[in-house]
């Protein structure tokens, strides 16, 4: 049984307040990242690429940039940042001495991780609009979907945080899981260029694949039944990792 009440929002609010206190530095990545990637890859490298499946290259990578940003912000929020709060700052210990339960602390952290992903997607949208690489109004859907995708990566991240022996060991999932996903999830080239077995692997085990495919449908305003499969995959995985993270964290924190 998972014990979550409205008190979860007090944990979320703590992180939101901390985020606002340092908002200047927090607001830089979502503005700078898409500009750098679009200039370097979209319009630099992209001049050698006429079109991908009939889509101009900058338009092809734009939804991937949003997906990657959501993945990074949520995953890293619930790995390194949560670990610092849990292990070094003892913030979780301080909170569970109050009527807030451990489950609520962990859930609040993950909901915050998802929120951070959504904030980043929201801030990126005007930049992408400025470059003319996304279509409106369907692209507004990037924002709510970023919350769901963010919750998925937050949950995965929190599972690693729950089992990691030290902050250094978090580099393993960062390099062995996140970085390959960044490259091989249909982000900068279509998935079907990869050998068949790797394609299947990406669809089965790399969540970013599904996130990119949905975001691409959103920015191109071109939806297909395959998107429903991706959405279902994400929904199931999100619930699974959300619950698993809470269970693993309980085991870690209740000694």
């Amino acid at each position: 049984m998972i014990d979550i009440t409205g008190r979860v929002q007090s944990v979320w609010r703590r992180n939101w307040d901390a985020f606002l206190r340092t908002y200047r530095v927090n607001f830089i990545p979502p503005f700078v990242e898409p500009v750098l990637y679009l200039l370097a890859l979209g319009f630099g490298l992209g001049t050698y690429i006429e079109a991908v499946d009939g889509i101009p290259y900058p338009v092809f990578i734009a939804p991937a940039l949003v997906s990657i940003s959501v993945m990074y912000s949520s995953f890293f929020e619930c790995t390194y940042s949560s670990f610092v709060r849990m292990y070094y700052q003892k913030t979780f210990d301080a909170i569970i001495a109050t009527p807030v339960s451990i489950d609520e602390v962990i859930a609040g952290e993950m909901l915050w991780g998802a929120t951070r992903g959504m904030i980043y997607a929201t801030l990126m949208l005007p930049v992408l609009l400025l470059f003319g690489v996304v279509t409106m109004p369907s692209s507004l859907l990037l924002i709510p979907f970023a919350y769901l995708a963010g919750l998925l990566f937050a949950g995965i991240g929190m599972c690693f945080t729950a089992i990691t022996p030290s902050i250094d060991a978090l580099n393993y999932p960062a390099f062995l899981f996140i970085t390959p996903m960044f490259l091989f999830s249909g982000t900068f080239f279509p998935l079907d260029l990869l050998p068949q077995p790797i394609q299947y692997f990406a669809l089965a085990a790399l969540p970013l694949t599904h996130v990119v495919s949905i975001n691409r449908a959103i920015t191109l305003s071109a939806f297909s039944p395959a998107n429903l499969f991706s959405l279902a995959w994400i929904a199931v995985a999100t619930v699974f990792f959300f619950v698993l993270a809470i269970r693993l964290m309980r085991r870690r924190l209740i000694a």
Binding site: K90, T91, A94
Partner: peptide, 10 residues
């Protein structure tokens, strides 16, 4: 608590 666990962000 014995350990200082004030919130350093605030």
């Amino acid at each position: 608590p014995q350990e200082n666990n004030l919130d350093p962000d605030f």
